[in-house]
Design a protein around this nucleic acid. Structure first.
Lengths: 124, 124
DNA sequence: TCACTGTTATATCTGTTATAATACAGTTGG
DNA sequence: CCAACTGTATTATAACAGATATAACAGTGA
């Protein structure tokens, strides 16, 4: 498997799985020749219980980003919608965070400098 | 009391207390004539157990933002250090968030617009 | 048929959160 | 001194979430 779970991070395992699967979907790492791992396969590879993977996948399915096909497997849903949802969430976070910084006395000019730095860094 | 705990938010009560006390300290609402409420007083006012308030105060003390004086009460610690620590944490969040937005294909120009909006809004 | 797939259910263990009830010791003002 | 506050400590209990173990059932496809 391309990642490991961290038992000491305080973050629930099923949340970690959702996060990693989400990243992989966004990077377009899944297709017909390289499908989402089955619940048993992923559980075995990560050394966790099947139910834990099931929970992660089912929550993801309810959010519309995975489709379950009983007897066959899980498949990626609407990637573009996933991207838009994440973008929307992060924009809200950004707006909130900036207001907090402003209230803490942070200057707009310094915030601008951090923004420039972010776009200066290399793209993954 | 100037706030209430939310039993249905999923956020532990002691965390809610820490957050509210932190905000009050930052706003300079505590001094000799208006000290931090005693553990029993706050517990009674919020309708929660003393131990829950104790946990909140003790964790805050270990972070250096409250000083316990047995027999007397709790007092605010180094407010400026608290402000700096929070600022540092939020700047890290900002940097991370901006890089994520960039990787999601968000444009620097749109980010700039959100930044302008944040500093345009009213100050608390 | 066989070996996969997802689905469902039950029971159990663990750690965290919160409560309740005491008890002890330090501080302060009358 | 004493009463009424403070913080501190301990023990027991309950509730809940997270994760596990185990098992069974049904759909798919080579």
């Amino acid at each position: 498997m391309w990642f490991r779970v961290d038992y000491h991070s305080g973050v629930p395992i099923y949340e970690q799985i959702k996060e990693r699967i989400k990243e992989a979907i966004l990077k377009g790492e899944f297709d017909d020749s390289n499908p989402v791992p089955s619940v048993r396969e992923l559980a075995k590879a990560l050394g966790v219980n099947v139910n834990t993977v099931v929970r992660a996948y089912r929550e993801f399915e309810m959010e519309g980003f995975l489709r379950a096909q009983p007897g066959v497997g899980y498949f990626v849903g609407d990637v573009e919608r996933l991207r838009e949802k994440i973008l929307c969430d992060k924009l809200q976070q950004l707006s909130l965070l900036l207001k907090e910084l402003r209230d803490l006395g942070f200057s707009k000019e310094d915030a601008l400098r951090i923004l420039e730095d972010a776009w200066r860094g290399e793209v993954r």
